[in-house]
Each structure stands twice: as structure tokens, then as C-alpha cells.
Design a protein around this nucleic acid. Structure first.
Length: 215
DNA sequence: GTCGAGATAAACT
DNA sequence: GTTTATCTCGACG
């Protein structure tokens, strides 16, 4: 017992307020539990050029316009899933990207998913056994560790169910750092990435590098 | 630790 | 056609 869920009102605030408050919280899916150590906030339409919702609602981002506390899962780079928690009331379109965490339960299951993920798709990483701290270090790896895929898009994480967010053990405010978001080309000066200072599971910062394939 | 290249889907111009 | 809220691998230090 003692599984205290984060209430929906927690998410019914701007994403840059929710994001630092999510650090130290625990996301649970089956036998695997991850304590969040790094997150990024994405703002509502028209206010944040880096947000999926910047240009309004599309089939992909529809969940972000739904009620707060639900999970928004998207597929990117042709092979990775990333997970967000929706913020602000229904209709606003904002959320927090879950960038990294520490696997505190079910590490064996999380590690096994690296080889044979719960969802079908090109997520296999054959031949390599990841170190404990790398299991959920980075948004796509966090999704793999928790077994999150397309089928979890839109799930409510504020009720007892398959996926849920627990109150966990937040760090002291002094241990929270912030800086520019990772891999975004626009609004690079907006310090909406938050992490727990000194935590080994925080992903290394990578600035955006434009892609162009020769030929 | 750094670097570059490649894999690949969906949204966008 | 190009870009993207990424990761892995090998090479190198």
C-alpha cells in the first residue's frame, strides 16, 4: 500500500511549473518503476515554437489537447517512442516530455525490453546489455524501459490503472537545475529543461544538429 | 568522454 | 522535397 497518486490538479498548471515539480516522482507500469530525474516543458499553441502543438491540433498531438494527467506518446525518427504528461485544462495543448529517470523497480524486466520490447516495431537493440544507469537515460530509452508504446497514447495516469504517477520522493528545490532544451532548433534560449543536479541518470546535453543526407 | 554516420516515420514546406 | 522533443555503433583519447 502507500501508493499515493499525483492528483490531476497537479497537472492543471503551466508545463514549466509542472515540469520541475515532476522531478523525483515515480512512473509505474507493471513491475517497472522509474523515478524521474530529467524533464522538459512544452507550451501551448502559438507560444512555443518547439512544441508539437505550436501550429494547432493535428491527429498526432490530439491527446495534448485533452485533459491533464494523461499520457501523450509520439513516434519519432522512424524508430523511437517518447512520452509526455499533458498539462493545463482540456483544450490548451501543453505537456512535459519525460527525458530520463532511474529504474527503481523491475530493472530485469526493463533490461529485457531492450532486446524484445513489449510493442512491435523497430525498437530492438540487439547484442548489448545496458548498464543499470542507462536503462532510462534519454526519452526513448525511458519509454522502452517502461514498455510504453502507441497503445498507451491517451492513458490517464491519475487513476489506479495500468500506468500511473506516484508522489515519490521529490528532491530539495536547491538540487533542481534548469537550462535549454535538448535537440530543439527553435526557442533554444528558453530554459525549460529541468533536472536533478548530479544525478548520474541525467542525459548529456546535445544541441540541435540539422540533418542533411548527402546524395 | 568526444565525434560522425546511419536507421527510419510522420509532419511539414 | 526537408526536418525532427533520438539512439546505437565504431573509432578515438
Amino acid at each position: 500500500m502507500g501508493e499515493r497518486l499525483l492528483g490531476r490538479e497537479f497537472f492543471d498548471r503551466p508545463s514549466d511549473v509542472v515540469a520541475p515539480g515532476l522531478l523525483g516522482r515515480v512512473l509505474v507500469h507493471g513491475p517497472v518503476a522509474v523515478r524521474l530525474t530529467e524533464v522538459e516543458a512544452y507550451g501551448p499553441p502559438g507560444h512555443d515554437p518547439a512544441s508539437h502543438t505550436y501550429r494547432g491540433r493535428t491527429p498526432r498531438n490530439a491527446v495534448m489537447f485533452g485533459p491533464p494527467g494523461h499520457l501523450y506518446v509520439y513516434f519519432t525518427y522512424g524508430m523511437h517512442y517518447c512520452a509526455n504528461l499533458v498539462c493545463l485544462p482540456e483544450g490548451m495543448g501543453s505537456g512535459v516530455l519525460l527525458r530520463a529517470g532511474e529504474v527503481i523497480e523491475g530493472a530485469d524486466v526493463a533490461r529485457a525490453r531492450r532486446h524484445r520490447p513489449a510493442t512491435s516495431g523497430p525498437l530492438t537493440h540487439p547484442g548489448r546489455v545496458p548498464a543499470e544507469r542507462d536503462l532510462a537515460r534519454g526519452p526513448a530509452r525511458l519509454a522502452v524501459a517502461l514498455g510504453i508504446g502507441r497503445e498507451h497514447n491517451g492513458l490517464d495516469c491519475c487513476v489506479p490503472g495500468e500506468l500511473r504517477v506516484l508522489e515519490g520522493d521529490p528532491p530539495s528545490p536547491a538540487a533542481v537545475r534548469s537550462g535549454p532544451r535538448t535537440g530543439v532548433s527553435s526557442a533554444a534560449d528558453t530554459p525549460w529543461r529541468f533536472w536533478i543536479d548530479g544525478d548520474p541518470t541525467v542525459s548529456p546535453y546535445r544541441k540541435h544538429v540539422p540533418k542533411t543526407r548527402p546524395n
